[in-house]
Design a protein around this nucleic acid. Structure first.
Lengths: 163, 163
DNA sequence: CTAGTTGCAAATGTTTTGCACAAAC
DNA sequence: GTTTGTGCAAAACATTTGCAACTAG
């Protein structure tokens, strides 16, 4: 099983090597070009901040961060660019328990999430055994799976200790 | 593994034996009494329709159904009564992919859901093996689980055939 | 009686959209 | 020069709340 942690609203992490955001930006630009869409500075600002921030930002948080480097951008452009990044397969939209969506940088591998109910920390993990069991269930139900969502909620290691 | 099906918006099912809704009504009344809350006719109408309809209704659908037998009730009372039923542990709130919540009659046992992306059918299932694996993951992560959410999406048996 | 409940309308919070102006290709 | 993108304000949507009138215990 592999694991990666993210604080909600945390700034960029070292395990996202410094060049990754730039690679994503290049992908973003080429995928825009493929669709006959334009690269603009609001778009670039939003995408770069999103890639550099790391994972699981809300639209609100992203808006606040983007404002710091470009106070001119509006909320609408944030949402429009998030949708665009999703269409370019550079972003995944998540709906945990809250009312607002959270957005993560799309990686190469599928993963599920653990969410700490006390501190809000999000831990990503992959577990092949669970993935296989889901296929077993699908077979027993006679259905064909296209995707799934597994979210575990509870107390993270730190919050357990500080109880 | 055990399984149970529900169409979104389907009317009451025979596998919900005819007396069940009345049993739920009695529970509802006694739990209201325990809390010093009142039984009223809007509340009763909403709760009875909810129990009789079966599972996975949206507030909108429930509102429409309740209107048929009591055109006087307002949306606010629907939501307030749903919240009350949840507090009485007679209802579970679910948030599948959509924007609106769906509400199911709370049963005795935990279960997860398969949702057909074509026809919207919802299939409930329980699988001990998956439940155990989740505990394994929690142990490996060093976290304590309080609850989880597993949703499988794809094509149900019927929709696969009619492709 | 009196605390709890209702319906309505208005407020909420998040996300989307219409539109005139502005910027990319 | 078109076509696409932007910001703003207004709309949309599901859900919640304030409040005066009402009703169950």
């Amino acid at each position: 099983m592999s694991v990666a942690e993210t604080d909600i609203g945390a700034a960029s992490r070292e395990h996202l090597s410094r060049s990754k955001p730039e690679q994503r930006m290049e992908l973003f630009h080429s995928r825009l070009r493929d669709r006959g869409l334009k690269s603009t500075s609001p778009r670039d600002d939003i995408a770069r901040v999103f890639f550099e921030l790391g994972r699981h930002v809300s639209a609100e948080e992203l808006y606040a961060e983007v404002k710091k480097i470009n106070p001119h951008v509006g909320y609408a452009t944030i949402y429009r660019t998030l949708k665009l990044l999703k269409e370019c397969e550079l972003l995944n939209e998540r709906h945990f328990d809250e009312d607002q969506a959270r957005f993560e940088v799309a990686g190469d591998h599928h993963h599920d999430h653990f969410i700490c109910e006390k501190c809000g920390k999000i831990v990503e993990f992959e577990d092949d055994a669970i993935e296989r069991m889901q296929q077993d269930v699908a077979r027993k139900l006679g259905v064909a799976l296209t995707r799934h969502k597994l979210e575990l909620y509870g107390l993270c290691a730190d919050c357990r200790r500080s109880r």
